[in-house]
């Protein structure tokens, strides 16, 4: 990356390329953020593409050296809301104010690539049933109702087990990251 990126003309091609490169650098975190707003969506990458087009068009509005993550997350939130409003395939699941509340909370959460490494280790520490349910739900892609059928459980009982598993993983990841920070 050029050393003097902060002196680039905001309307220049090189400035636009610099903004696009920042998008790539943050694309994993952005994907997690959009997934957390649309947890059951299969077209997250379509939305990311839309966000990419918006940041390309508005690249001149971004000042290099300032908080790109805040800027692009704001654009992603607006893009998700617009997508939910206009999409006939996906009736708006939650109302706008609820989505805004979750989106604002979500921007502060550590849902990024620093979690992935720790999460791999934490998955192996889950106990038997939780680990089994998590693998079936996420690695094998089974819906919770199918898991319930397979074990003769009620769907709500499966939801409770998966919820506990997610919270347990979350705590484990936080411990791992704290430990890494303390020993580095």
């Amino acid at each position: 990356m050029p050393d003097n990126e902060h002196t680039l003309d905001p309307n220049s091609r090189r400035h636009q390329e610099a903004v696009q490169a920042l998008f790539v650098k943050n694309s994993r975190d952005l994907r997690f953020f959009v997934l957390s707003l649309l947890p059951s969506a299969d077209d997250v990458d379509d939305i990311l593409q839309e966000v990419f087009l918006v940041i390309t068009k508005k690249a001149h509005q971004f000042t290099l050296g300032t908080n790109f993550r805040a800027w692009v997350f704001r654009i992603a939130r607006i893009t998700v809301l617009n997508e939910l409003r206009k999409s006939k395939k996906r009736p708006c699941l939650l109302e706008d104010d609820v989505l805004e509340l979750l989106a604002c909370e979500g921007e502060t959460v550590l849902a990024d690539t620093s979690m992935l490494d720790a999460l791999g280790r934490c998955l192996n520490k889950l106990d038997g049933r939780m680990k089994q349910f998590v693998r079936m739900r996420y690695e094998d892609g089974l819906k919770s109702s199918k898991i319930a059928e397979a074990f003769g459980w009620t769907p709500n009982a499966v939801y409770v087990t998966l919820s506990r598993a997610r919270l347990s993983l979350r705590k484990c990841v936080e411990r791992e990251l704290r430990h890494r920070e303390a020993t580095s």
Binding site: S36, E105, A111, L119, G120, R166
Partner: peptide, 28 residues
């Protein structure tokens, strides 16, 4: 509740990433 939704959504998003499972297999 809001915080819990967001925390679980973050883990949910990470678990949907295939890379998490590659890492888990490597650790195993």
């Amino acid at each position: 509740f809001r915080r819990r939704v967001v925390d679980e959504s973050a883990v949910h998003a990470a678990l949907r990433d295939q890379q998490t499972w590659v890492e888990a297999d490597r650790v195993k």
